[in-house]
Design a protein around this nucleic acid. Structure first.
Lengths: 334, 334
DNA sequence: CTGTTAGCGCTTTCAT
DNA sequence: ATGAAAGCGCTAACAG
């Protein structure tokens, strides 16, 4: 039924080993023989079985990637970077959504390992002890992508969220704003939510400004939570004159909340955030935001992983990519 | 080094077959034996090798999905639907971007087949003869996802783009608009761009309205091309009073172009589109659009694929999912 | 309920 | 430059 390497060998009048050699581009084959084999392959419509090859060679040329949610554009962009580089190095990608649920994350890491992936890219929220435990049983390299572990024991590629937040808030301060609110993410999330909050705090403190509890609301990174949080600020008696949102989406929510209250951005209230998703230039006013190089994070982490899988010597296993503030139209001088 | 089923068997004092049985949940094992085996597994930290299993059983419990671009939110949403259902049926996903490039599409289909996926989900633009050729050599089922072949020979799940467009334009007409422009996609793309254009034409014609060349511009489905196209209309001497855009993104571009010209949506010009991406409710005014159930398209096509892989009898192999017009704030009566 | 025994389709020494 | 043969780790009859 299915044609195997053996059939090709018979058809070409050579041994399996020889067929294997030509399929794998081993130079030790006489051109003439190579030709015969190719003809037989063509003739029979032979398609190498990658599973058998994987079993025999102990390499599958596929890497597993666990991602919180592929339908979230931030992660989708990272995934695209991963895929492009993987492709370039002839790896395929097994993609698993894990929704930032610890149990699911650990489960998929295990099934990925069972599938004998040659390496693992882990994109998630927190890296707990249980994660480390699961990672430790892996015989293949793992790199954290768009996150880091606190001990810095595992190779990772990310931006410095704290300093990105610091820069965003500092811009606001430089423009003369003093009464600056923050729409934060989850403060339980050390790699992102909390780090961005820390950056806000540091910028405020260094500028001699007070960090007031009532000027901080936590959202879930999404649009709706941005409008909710902003509505809260709008209705408080100490209305901020600028808002720093932990994500573009929440910032856009905030902008609309402000506009729906009959106020103007940036004339009445300035807004700045982090991410620089495509949407940032698809709002009016266009969003001033700190660009997170998501595609590059994916690309660089995949590249790092290829080196690790290749057992190359890598000096830097903890890579921090630079961020950049993109000034558009949502921030005004006071 | 790596612990195999054989090691577990020895440790537990049973045969490989028995270990295999307990790992695969075969009921024919005495509870006591099962327990012994589990202990040995635990002890040794045994992790079944899915590649070996795949070779022996000729099933990999993974399906391949070829997708144009995972960083495009439309496709990402489909992918999420696929993943969720795949997960539910214990399949994993190998994801390959193919950028709607025919060569790349065919190449990845082949490598996916080499990897012995149990089934294939194909999301792409046009399905050419060459595609069909590649599909035909497959011994595993294939379903087209968010596209169809013209002959209808291959199982597929999609919406009826023509009628979605028809409904969108008809809404405009019902509201009293007569001078309706269209920002189309690629008219070379039969499954989407052209079908949506056909729907526009039919709605116009049936209403006794003229389809004017100068009222139609082609974009590339993206935001920028929406603003470009709209600018063209805005500067022409026959300004439309309503615009139908083939995608939300282009519609949002159009809205901003209109606003940047000092006009109002929908007061001066109404805008309607197709997609209902999350962004549709993240613009002001919120976008009236035809909802394309992307998640469901992914979910349903994966479900269909599971049935096919299972050799179940399926009556309907060409599924057309319903669309629905979502009226928000971008369309006004004249 | 459990064990024996062939493979699955390929890679990889080791010879020649 | 090529072939023979031993696995890779597991499943699936088959036998008992």
């Amino acid at each position: 039924m299915t044609v195997t390497i053996y059939d090709v060998a018979r058809e070409a009048g050579v041994s399996m080993a020889t067929v294997s050699r030509v399929v794998n581009n081993n130079p030790n084959v006489k051109p003439q023989t190579r030709k015969k084999v190719f003809e037989a392959i063509e003739q029979l419509g032979y398609r190498p079985n990658a599973v058998a090859r994987g079993l025999a060679s102990k390499k599958t040329t596929t890497v597993g990637v666990v991602i919180p949610d592929i339908s979230n554009s931030i992660f989708a962009e990272v995934a695209r970077g991963i895929e492009d580089i993987a492709n370039m190095y002839h790896y395929n990608i097994i993609l698993c959504n894990a929704d930032k649920k610890k149990d699911k994350e650990i489960r998929v890491v295990n099934t990925l390992l069972e599938k004998q992936v040659d390496g693992l890219l882990f994109m998630g929220g927190v890296v707990t002890d249980e994660h480390n435990q699961a990672f430790r049983t892996s015989s293949v390299p793992i790199v954290l992508c768009a996150t880091t572990d606190e001990q810095g024991a595992i190779p990772s590629v990310d931006i410095d969220h704290e300093s990105a937040a610091y820069d965003a808030v500092s811009l606001l301060i430089a423009k003369g704003h003093r009464n600056i609110a923050m729409i934060a993410g989850s403060l339980q999330d050390p790699a992102l939510g909390y780090a961005r909050f820390q950056g806000y705090k540091r910028a405020m403190t260094e500028a001699g400004l007070k960090v007031l509890d009532e000027m901080i609301r936590s959202g879930n990174y999404r649009y709706e939570s941005g409008v909710e949080a902003m509505n809260y600020f709008l209705e408080s008696d100490n209305r901020p004159d600028a808002v720093f949102a932990a994500t573009d989406e929440m910032a856009i929510g905030a902008i609309h909340a402000i506009q729906d209250h009959g106020l103007k951005v940036p004339d009445d209230i300035s807004v700045v955030s982090i991410d620089n998703t495509r949407m940032a230039s698809m709002v009016r006013p266009q969003l001033t935001t700190v660009a997170q190089p998501m595609y590059d994070i994916g690309a660089v982490s995949m590249r790092l992983l290829t080196k690790l899988m290749n057992k190359e010597n890598v000096e830097q296993t903890r890579i921090v990519l630079p961020h950049e503030i993109i000034q558009r139209k949502s921030v005004a001088p006071v």
